[in-house]
Design a protein around this nucleic acid. Sequence first.
DNA 1: AGCTTCCGTGAATGCTCATTCGCCTTGACC
DNA 2: GGTCAAGGCGAATGAGCATTCACGGAAGCT
Lengths: 213, 213
Amino acid sequence: MPRITAERREARRIEILAAARRCFSRDGFHQTSMPDIAREAGLSAGAFYRYFPSKEDVILEIAGQAFGAMAGRIAAVGEDGSPAGIADIVAAVVGPMSGPTIELGPGDVAPTDELARCGVQAWGELMRHDTLRNRAAAAFDVLRARVAEVLRRGQVAGDVPADLEPDHGARVVMALLPGFVLQRQAFGLDDADGFVRAVDTLLGRTPPSEQPV
Amino acid sequence: MPRITAERREARRIEILAAARRCFSRDGFHQTSMPDIAREAGLSAGAFYRYFPSKEDVILEIAGQAFGAMAGRIAAVGEDGSPAGIADIVAAVVGPMSGPTIELGPGDVAPTDELARCGVQAWGELMRHDTLRNRAAAAFDVLRARVAEVLRRGQVAGDVPADLEPDHGARVVMALLPGFVLQRQAFGLDDADGFVRAVDTLLGRTPPSEQPV
DNA sequence: AGCTTCCGTGAATGCTCATTCGCCTTGACC
DNA sequence: GGTCAAGGCGAATGAGCATTCACGGAAGCT
């Protein structure tokens, strides 16, 4: 018979994750100590371990949130049946991010700057953490296939060059996203509209040969 | 009167940096201990400190190498007077990377996978290390201006949409690079040719309106 | 050769940190 | 209200780490 309800317990867990995100986005994964997280969450160091087995578990969970938030935005494009183009995909990921981080469900949070900063650090972890990398690779493949599908539809509609290999094209589209995130988080370049407009223009919606100066 | 010549001293310094790159690319900045670096360099832990004041200095120097190697490739595009396009810039960064890391000059090394992996981790450091961020931001601005200039020339030649804002377009081109590096280093996707081909196609060299299915 | 100066060594130092443990508190259930 | 298992606490633990230091030895110079 637990002293606190399951809901309260879950809320506490989520609160600890939120505190960890704040610490990680401010100081980095490895410069944040457990007492830091506990203090930020308003708990003692010991209480933390009633909710998570180790610090690494929190890092992995937050890395998962960061990747998941991005993936969720991409996956949502075109789900309502509207005709989705490449620029729509880019716009979805690159869209507004400010405000507090909101829990959408268990382990599912809205994308924020805070989370994006954790994500950038998680890229570094990807390269030597096998579990994280495998999960991320699987998610990447799903998204890439989805983007490739959008490109194929675009080819049918004539919006996308017919001689583009969709799988390679999807790689290029996916490659735009980390670059934008990095520019925004590291250099403060957050003109998402200008970025999307440039993507739209570059992608040939307005073919250069028909737009002489 | 030094016991070893200046050349030998410099060689040792470079060797330590090489050892640190190997360790960092394998285990990450913060999972690598000083004894690890010393052992990899064939030195004692104490000797390291005759060459560098601290571990952080090595990290910063290697981060600088990683960014500098990329920057060097971008900056080299079009320097020989040949007409450079966007795809040339992407191709330059995305090009071959294997082989041992080669010292090109003081603090100047050729891009390798090893160095690229250090670079990805350095992105995470960027966000909370002011000195590193400021230097990177300055370098980024220079490169972006250079890419924007290539785009302007492309507009004159008719290869690039006239209504593209060159500064925004340059951001987009620059954004492609971290994405490609991450895909290569984290997921092993190293088909650089296919990537460049897709960039070339997407950029509208072959306007979609003239390529109906 | 003799002196001096610097280099390399590796054990010692003095932290910090993740994690654990014994104890007290709290709230649910009877 | 009483009981008791779980929650919370924070000092204690023990490992690991960056950095320092005192010494042995090798090069340069005279």
